[in-house]
C-alpha cells in the first residue's frame, strides 16, 4: 500500500479492484457457457487459463482490505464497505471456479457426439448472468432495493434447475447410452444453481453495506 494516500483514493482503488474481479467472474461464466453451447473448446481453455489471474485478484483484494483495516481503521460506511468487499471477493472467486468447472465439462463433451439441446440450461445461464450483472450494478451504486430484487429472482434459477434436472433424468431413462453426458450436463446445471446462491450472498452484502442491516439467514 502506498503511504499518505487519501482514504477515499484507497477505497476507490479497492472498489475498482473488486469490480475487476466481478467482471472477470462474469466473463468467465459467459465464455464457459458459450463454449458449452457452441462446442468451442478453445474458448473453454481460455476460461481455464484466466482462472489463475482471478485467484490472484482475490488475494490482492484480501490484502488491500487487511491493509485498510490495519492502517486506516475505517468506521461507519467505510467499514461496512471494506468488510463487504472482503467477504465478497471469495464469493466472486468461487463463481469463477464454477465457471471453470463448466469449461472443463465443455471440453469433455466437445470430444463426444453432440447431445440433444437442453433449452432450460441456456435460460439458466442467461438468468444467472443477468443476476450477476445486476448484483454488481447494485453493489456499485450501493442500491439495497436493487440488491433485494436480485435476491428474489434467485427463485427463478432454482425453478429452472428443477426443470433441467427432470429433463436430464428423463433423457437418461429414455436413452441410457447418453447417461454419462447427461450427468455432466446435470453438473453444469448444479454449478449454475450454486452461482445463483453466490449472487444472493453478494446482494446480502450490498444490503449490509448500504443499510447496516444483516438479512442473511433470516428466513
Amino acid at each position: 500500500m502506498e503511504y499518505h494516500r487519501h482514504p477515499d483514493d484507497e477505497l476507490d482503488s479497492l472498489r475498482d479492484r473488486v469490480l475487476l474481479l466481478g467482471g472477470e467472474a462474469e466473463t468467465a461464466l459467459e465464455r464457459a457457457m458459450k463454449a458449452l453451447m457452441e462446442r468451442d473448446s478453445e474458448l473453454a481453455r481460455q476460461v481455464l487459463n484466466q482462472d489463475d489471474k482471478i485467484d490472484q485478484l482475490e488475494v490482492e483484494v484480501d490484502r488491500q482490505c487487511i491493509d485498510i483495516i490495519a492502517l486506516r481503521q475505517p468506521a461507519a460506511r467505510d467499514l461496512r464497505f471494506v468488510i463487504s468487499v472482503a467477504k465478497m471477493a471469495p464469493v466472486l472467486e468461487r463463481i469463477a471456479d464454477h465457471a471453470a468447472n463448466i469449461a472443463r465439462v465443455a471440453i469433455d463433451l466437445n470430444n463426444e457426439p453432440e447431445l440433444k439441446s437442453v433449452v432450460d440450461l441456456g435460460r439458466m445461464s442467461e438468468h444467472g448472468l443477468r443476476m450477476l450483472r445486476a448484483a454488481l450494478d447494485a453493489f456499485t451504486s450501493g442500491d439495497a432495493a436493487a440488491a433485494r430484487e436480485v435476491i428474489l429472482s434467485d427463485a427463478e434459477i432454482n425453478e429452472l434447475y428443477n426443470h433441467v434436472f427432470h429433463q436430464l433424468i428423463e433423457m437418461m431413462v429414455t436413452e441410457p447410452s447418453t447417461a454419462t453426458r447427461d450427468a455432466r450436463l446435470l453438473f453444469v446445471a448444479k454449478h449454475l444453481e450454486r452461482i445463483g446462491d453466490y449472487v444472493t450472498d453478494i446482494c446480502e452484502l450490498t444490503v449490509y453495506m448500504a443499510e447496516a442491516a444483516f438479512i442473511k439467514h433470516f428466513k
Binding site: P7, D8, P74, A75, A76, R77, D78, L79, R80, E211, A212
Partner: peptide, 17 residues
C-alpha cells in the same frame, strides 16, 4: 455510532471526511 451513525456530520467526522 461507529458502524452506522444517524447523522451525516457524525459519519463525516468518524470517517475522516
Amino acid at each position: 455510532m461507529f458502524t452506522n451513525p444517524d447523522e451525516k456530520l457524525t459519519e463525516d467526522y468518524i470517517t475522516g471526511r
